[in-house]
């Protein structure tokens, strides 16, 4: 099984959808990972308000939580998102980037359990909360 080195993983930047929307590494601990998503006009959900759409915030938290799972495991075990539940606590502000923190709080044989929070710099004033699960896709490790 491949060992997982978070900093090495994020060093080259993000590919695919994460790269397209401009996700960047921010910080991490033993069971959590924080990523940043700078504000961009093409991520907004409403031309009039200029606030970020919900979708990029979900993507940000999904990636952060995935990385938290692999980092906590210490191994890269391929998985797929099983479900995500988002609470949109307040509307994002115009022209504000978002920090997404994903935490893996439990790993079972085939399912990993995560939670996350998205904010604009002040964790005490979050814009969204997440809970979710990931399912190991291949043979169980």
């Amino acid at each position: 099984m491949l060992s997982f080195d978070l900093l090495r993983f994020v060093r080259g930047g993000f590919g695919g959808h994460g790269g397209r929307i401009g996700i960047e590494y921010h910080d991490h601990g033993t069971d959590w990972c924080e990523l940043a998503l700078p504000w961009r006009e093409d991520l907004t959900g409403d031309d009039r308000t200029g606030a970020m759409a919900a979708g990029p915030v979900v993507s940000l938290l999904d990636v952060a939580a995935s990385l938290a799972v692999w980092h906590r495991r210490g191994q890269f075990v391929p998985h797929a998102t099983l479900d995500l539940r988002l609470d949109h606590l307040r509307a994002p502000r115009a022209n504000e980037g978002v920090i997404g923190r994903g935490e893996c709080y439990r790993i079972e044989e085939s399912v990993s359990f995560v939670r996350g929070i998205a904010h604009e710099g002040d964790p005490d004033d979050p814009i969204a909360h997440l809970v979710g699960t990931y399912m190991v896709t291949g043979a169980r490790p």
Partner: peptide, 21 residues
Amino acid sequence: LDVVGRPGFLHGGAIAGLLEF
């Protein structure tokens, strides 16, 4: 490539965005 997650598959966040819209 703009909506890829793991190689060859759609990103869960891109799917979430599509469902939201």
